[in-house]
Design a protein around this nucleic acid. Structure first.
Lengths: 198, 198
DNA sequence: GTCTATAGATTGATAGAC
DNA sequence: GTCTATCAATCTATAGAC
């Protein structure tokens, strides 16, 4: 997770990364300043030198997640030259992150639903992370020639992966997740085959 | 929602129903005793005559939701004589409850993920509501002759509906939900057709 | 930039009068 | 069964010394 050495990071960066983890693991509302301060090992007072309100930290965390996501999507683009392979990279995160998903669900989906319930101002910012995936997936489908249905297919794949994450939290089973991942890969193959046959 | 006249309910029942609504709309952690007391219009002190701890209310709400769910599943059984029609009843709740889903997500999925993050003792009780749907759907698929795959199909359909609920919260669009519902109905038809052709 | 001390509000929970 | 009064703990946030 945090591979950088502690002393190469500013306190602000350390706060953001600690908050990022805690918001994911405990939820935004249930994470207090004391929790984050304990994790970063600074006093609560020092906190307000870097962030004026809890909402400011949330904003910074969302922005941090946006950057992490953009980076990851670029890595997937380098990893695979064809769009099918890139979409498979997306599908594969369910397996790669299974250990965390079974405990805390999907970081994007769970933050979105929590902020929706809190009727929080940052809700739309959090949705932007979803939009990042949505547009990226949509572009991949377009590259496969599925121009008209690209956005629908992207939304469908996002929904499926969200649902699998939720079910994996309720009924933790790696076998189940793998089964759904195989199902998604087959579905992807079928979309491409169906299209090239038309 | 609350069709019963207020004066035919005990205070305890009124507390449970108010807590049920608030836990759904605001989340468990973000709902305080004061919020529930305001809604029921009783004092906070009176609260502890009926429930000793906040966890006790959560337990009562989960139990209440279990009963509501059992009732709903029975209604679906009466509504449709064939299993396909009953499964369609399940799929249709995405449209029937769209107005609430776009604001608060699915009541079962969001409670499950919140309790998972809180590492709450009632997490397994909340999962029992999912189990209710899972077994019921599984039984319907068995009735369609899909005995071997029944549980996998049930889990897959649950995942899909969960995912659609999450996406509908992030990107509210009734057209999107209807599109996914049509997709699910077609998928269901295909499962039945594929099976009878074998 | 980091700390201690503290404010002011709210939390879950209790005691006791009516 | 319902109320008021109150507790101790915790919350976000501020002020000011170093």
């Amino acid at each position: 997770m945090n591979t950088k050495a502690r002393n190469t990071q500013t306190t602000k960066e350390r706060i953001i990364e600690a908050a990022d983890d805690l918001f994911y693991q405990k939820g935004y509302e249930f994470t207090s300043f004391a929790d984050i301060a304990d994790e970063v090992k600074i006093s609560r007072g020092n906190f307000y030198h870097h962030f004026k309100t809890k909402d400011d930290i949330l904003g910074a965390v969302i922005s941090h997640r946006m950057n992490k996501t953009k980076k990851m999507l670029k890595e997937w683009e380098d990893e695979s030259k064809d769009a099918e392979g890139r979409i498979r990279c997306f599908i594969h995160i369910l397996i790669a992150n299974y250990a965390k998903i079974k405990l805390y669900g999907c970081p994007v989906g769970t933050l979105t639903t929590e902020l929706a319930k809190l009727d929080h101002a940052s809700q739309e910012d959090a949705n932007q992370i979803f939009t990042l995936f949505r547009k990226w997936l949509s572009n991949q489908f377009k590259e496969l020639g599925l121009k008209k249905e690209a956005d629908s297919l992207a939304m469908h794949l996002l929904a499926l992966s969200q649902g699998v994450a939720t079910m994996a939290t309720a009924f933790p089973s790696e076998a189940y997740v793998k089964q759904e991942v195989n199902h998604m890969n087959e579905w992807l193959r079928q979309q491409i085959t169906n299209h090239s046959n038309n």
